[in-house]
């Protein structure tokens, strides 16, 4: 294993985990707050708005403010408002909504940063489930003889044949929506590739000298599997997991877009894209922006996993 080459992708994974924790904290606004929906709704990216704190109502916003004597004229939907300077409880504040606002006047950037946590955690948990199931199935198939192997591979084929979305659809129709359901549904439909990988590794390791030696010494298959084969098979699994993470992230967002993902009001990038679906012609940024977050994250993780694989497996094909 080339230590230095592996360090960079591992660092990316670490950054990702830290991001899941820290990104929501970087949000400039409260992601769920709707201070003034009428005035702030569907503002395009890079819009500036002004917060006018009135004594009786601290959150009056306007898209433009002009003064006329001792009165402020606020330009805002649905109609302009006049506020006496003497009624202000704080100076007029100007804020920029870098990525625009949605139909409820919530800041899209803050929602995307806050939604990153659930998106990343769900994808991570789904991959963990897939890894667990896949490793178990693969090891059993590779270590315990051809009959179990054939049976398990048949099962793998069956689940592989299933279009994943339809399988999740069926599960979503039978059970009530929850984060757990999404994690299980994704995990239980995504383990097949890992299982195959582990099985292949296990089979090839079994044929190698140390395994033959262990068998000669009288080791039982189970012991062989656990003590010797599994640890060696894990290396390719780790890279596979990295590749799967990006896939799980995109899959979760697809489910949320279809309305069979995490239940509202929890937000992931996929649900935010779905929010903007009916306003695509007029407020395209609501759907487009969270997608950029998705693409960037999936790309970063995918590239990291790719280079990790190349670092760990000498002479591996691209």
């Amino acid at each position: 294993m080339s230590g230095r080459a592996a360090a960079v992708p591992l660092a990316v994974f670490g950054v990702l985990l830290a991001a899941a924790g820290a990104l929501p904290l970087a949000a400039p606004f409260d992601p769920d707050a709707m201070p003034d929906t009428a005035a702030l709704r569907v503002l395009p990216p890079l819009s500036t708005a002004f917060r006018v704190a009135r004594r009786d109502r601290p959150d009056v916003w306007a898209t433009a403010v002009t003064t006329r004597g001792d009165v402020l004229i606020l330009e805002r939907a649905p109609r302009p408002l006049e506020v006496k300077l003497s009624d202000l409880s704080a100076p007029v504040e100007s804020r920029t909504f870098l990525l625009g606002t949605d139909q409820l006047g919530r800041d899209i950037l803050s929602r995307c940063l806050s939604g990153s946590r659930l998106s990343i955690l769900v994808a991570g948990a789904a991959v963990a489930v897939a890894a667990l199931v896949g490793t178990a199935v693969g090891t059993l198939a590779g270590a315990f003889g051809p009959r179990l192997d054939a049976g398990l591979m048949r099962v793998t084929d069956v689940v592989l044949s299933f279009p994943r979305v339809f399988l999740v659809l069926l599960l979503a129709s039978l059970f009530s929506r929850s984060v757990t359901l999404v994690v299980l549904a994704l995990g239980l439909t995504g383990w097949m590739g890992i299982a195959r990988q582990v099985r292949a590794e296990t089979l090839s390791l079994r044929a190698r000298e140390f395994a033959l030696a262990a068998t000669a010494l009288g080791a039982r298959p189970a012991r062989l599997a656990l003590r010797h084969l599994l640890p060696n098979a894990l290396t390719p699994v780790l890279t596979e997991i990295g590749l799967r993470f990006a896939g799980a992230l995109l899959a979760e967002s697809s489910l949320s877009y279809l309305g069979i993902g995490v239940p509202p009001p929890q937000a992931t990038w996929g649900t935010i894209v779905a929010d903007g679906r009916d306003s695509l012609a007029t407020a395209w940024w609501i759907s487009v922006v969270p997608g950029l977050f998705l693409v960037a994250t999936a790309l970063a993780v995918g590239a990291a996993a790719d280079s990790l694989r190349r670092a760990l497996i000498p002479g591996a094909r691209r």
Partner: peptide, 26 residues
């Protein structure tokens, strides 16, 4: 080039569809 292909691989199809609609239709 490999990274470009990876980038395409990282785009969720529903979002790609929405972007294409936003650009070519709306």
């Amino acid at each position: 080039a490999g990274t470009c292909v990876l980038a395409l691989h990282s785009i969720p199809s529903f979002w790609l569809g929405l972007v294409l609609v936003a650009v070519f239709a709306h």
